[in-house]
Amino acid sequence: MSCSEKYVDYMHDFLDEDITEEHEQELREHLHSCSACEEHFRELKKAIAFVQSTAHIKAPDNFTAKIMDNLPKEKRKVELKRWFKNHPFLAAASLFLVLMAGSILSTWNQEQQFSVSKQPNLVVENDTVIVPEGEVVKGDIVVRNGKIKIEGEVQGDVTVINGEKYMASAARVTGEISEVNEIFEWIWYHIKETTENTVNLIEDKEQSLK
């Protein structure tokens, strides 16, 4: 090629859309007069057109799925969080169950020790609670992991959990007497009690609203 390299540089500047107006003008004029350079320019544009004409190809199917399978395992925490987000009701229910079971079990474990509800005239000897003869105990009595001997009068319910009860012939209990020994019974008792408390609470509220 006999023409100056400068024109080839101009061609590339033109193709990069990075050419000054004077250079562009100069290039145009030159291309009109020089067929070799015109051919060169045409070939450059043709090469570009060929490259651009290569059809846009798409990634293979399940490309994304394959990547997701190969990513390092994400933190458990996030997985759990997303599950909660997608199943709010199940999440609430399971959370409730977990807490419920937790609280019941923990109270069960806690309450392996002897305990008794406090009333002023109850007598406690080792693990035996005595309602003395001639005394009147007001309110409900709950005995856990211990015995109760009733010789007097109880104005209320008597509940024995994991224990035994003895009643003297003169004993009088105005409320219900119940014994709870098995864990399932105990759970049932617990739930009943909670529900009762809740109902009472609601009733109290309603009353206070009136």
Partner: peptide, 10 residues
């Protein structure tokens, strides 16, 4: 690159 392609594709 363009020059090389021009040669190859002319």
């Amino acid at each position: 690159g363009r020059e090389a392609l021009r040669q190859q594709l002319r």
